[in-house]
């Protein structure tokens, strides 16, 4: 998929008016919403993330691209600790998560489950395989986090859920079960479920990779609108059209390290590094 898809009908992000002033994450103390320092992660014997530093400002949309196995999904999952980094630090709104302990093998990060759960309320994640709860209706799916985790009252949760479902265009499907919806509709429910928690940052892990081609557009549109509305987003995707149109910054990851980053115009149209060029060239053949 190259840079010529329907979502590319807006001028590149760099030319648009600055966003973020009304974003959900206020820059109260000037600190970035998300900050990763020296993130390392190994699986078994091999090191997948070899020291990642990343800062995401409020209202910024960061798109991460890279080959399979480059570590981009692992990086995303380290942000909400579905994977636990072996070393490095994660700061959410200036607060660091986890405590460093000194062991015989050097310093290690230790996390308490309660601390992680509390932090995850402020980070929304959308999965490649949607992961909707099949035994609950659409609106119950969106309400679940509000009731079980945020402890809202049922009616309040329901009102909020319906509002978010309407925002993603699924107001008529609220009482249906996920199995009756198309892939694109299910993913939009998943987005609403994450948004209903009113997170400070939204993570998208190849949100459209599992969708049939004709359903990709409706999900990308929702993501575009979200980005334009000022949400802080970190998006792992292969959809270069979306990256070009919606990203404030594009990051190319290669073998566990940030190889090159810049504006979409810089990275996608005029990449400087050889590997970046090779990667983008490879995509053109699709």
């Amino acid at each position: 998929m190259t840079l010529s898809d329907p979502t590319n009908d807006q001028p590149p992000a760099a030319d648009r008016a600055p966003r973020g002033a009304s974003g959900p994450a206020a820059r109260a103390n000037g600190a970035p919403v998300l900050k990763l320092e020296g993130i390392h992660k190994s699986f078994g014997g091999s090191e997948v993330l070899k020291g990642i530093d990343l800062e995401v400002a409020a209202g910024e949309t960061v798109v991460i691209i890279g080959a399979s196995g480059s570590g981009k999904s692992t990086l995303l999952r380290c942000i909400n600790f579905l994977e636990l980094p072996d070393a490095g630090r994660v700061y959410l709104k200036g607060e660091s998560v986890g405590t460093t302990v000194s062991t015989r093998r050097g310093e290690r990060l230790v996390f308490k489950e309660q601390e992680l759960n509390a932090m995850r309320r402020h980070v929304g994640m959308v999965f490649q395989s949607f992961n909707l709860f099949p035994h609950m209706t659409v609106v119950q799916n969106v309400m679940e986090g509000l009731v079980s985790v945020l402890r809202l009252k049922r009616d309040e949760a329901r009102t909020r859920a319906l509002r978010h479902l309407e925002a993603v265009g699924l107001a008529e499907k609220t009482e249906q079960y996920p199995s009756r919806l198309s892939g694109g509709q299910q993913q939009r429910v998943a987005i609403a479920r994450a948004l209903a928690m009113e997170p400070d940052v939204m993570l998208f892990d190849e949100a459209t990779s599992a969708l049939d081609p004709e359903l990709v557009g409706e999900v990308l549109q929702v993501m575009r609108d979200l980005s334009l509305g000022g949400m802080t987003m970190v998006v792992v995707t292969h959809e270069m059209g979306f990256a070009y149109a919606a990203a404030d910054r594009v990051i190319f990851i290669h073998q566990g390290q940030i190889h090159e980053q810049g504006t979409p115009e810089e990275i996608l149209k005029h990449p400087k590094q050889e590997r970046t060029k090779a990667f983008l060239r490879g995509l053109d053949h699709i």
Binding site: N80, L82, E113, Q114, N117, A118, M119, R120, R121, V123, G124, M125, F127, S129, F130, N131, L132, F133, E144, G145, S148, V149, A190, R193, A194, M197
Partner: peptide
């Protein structure tokens, strides 16, 4: 039960018990 269900719940901030 598919792993994704565990991850979706955890991503919402659910405790293991919930």
């Amino acid at each position: 039960i598919h792993r994704g269900q565990w991850e979706a719940g955890r991503a919402l901030g659910m405790s293991n018990l919930t």
